[in-house]
Computed example of a mutant assay.
Amino acid sequence: MGPTRKRDLTTATVIVAIIGFVVVSLTYRWFPPITFWTGLSLLAVAAVEVGWAFYVRSKIGDGKIGDGPGWLHPLAVARAVMISKASAWVGALALGWWVGVLVYLLPKRAVLRVAREDSTGVVVAAVSALALVLAALWLQHCCRAPDEPPEDADGARN
């Protein structure tokens, strides 16, 4: 399993943004209000992932990966990688949706009061989704194994 490719996340975001724009343009009149609080759950998950990333990074840096008291079990690191991969995709898809909604709302802000009111919530949700993508990629980066030390001329490790 390799790292999540940013190109794939970007492609998914653009595709969902286009689909989201079409869906919103057809169904916006039936939408509930989009408030400031709408996307903040994504920001909370992003904050937790950033905290976990710093913890994992410090344990890997200290060489405390293994089975023992005060050590981080390797399966916990593997689970963190899986969570980061899933979070990156969820964040990318959510970002695409909210960008599609925002592209629909921006021209309507001048004429629709509800579009002006919803714009703030949409921007917060889009920023929260972007934060989740970035936090997930950071967690994934922090879970990488450290580089092996270079070998001496006689084949012994430093």
Rank of each mutant, 00 (worst) to 15 (best):
A17Q: 06
V99Y: 08
R5P: 00
A156T: 06
K64E: 15
V23T: 05
G70R: 12
G20V: 03
V133K: 01
Y104W: 15
R5H: 06
V133T: 02
T27I: 02
R29G: 08
P33S: 13
A156I: 00
F54N: 13
R109I: 13
W37Y: 15
S128W: 03
L139H: 03
A129P: 00
P69Q: 11
A115S: 12
L75A: 14
P149W: 01
P3R: 15
L130N: 05
G2T: 11
T11P: 00
A17E: 00
T4L: 03
G61I: 04
A76T: 07
F31L: 07
I19A: 12
S41L: 12
G66L: 12
L40A: 08
W138C: 04
A94L: 14
A94G: 12
L75D: 13
L9E: 01
N158L: 07
A94Y: 14
L106A: 13
V99R: 04
I83R: 10
G39I: 06
V114Q: 01
L102Y: 14
R109A: 14
V23G: 00
P3E: 11
A136Y: 01
R144F: 04
I18P: 00
D118Y: 13
G96S: 05
C142G: 03
L102H: 10
I34P: 00
A78Y: 11
Y104K: 13
V133A: 05
R57A: 07
W89T: 06
A86E: 05
W97T: 02
I34Y: 09
W138Q: 08
G96C: 08
D152H: 10
A115I: 06
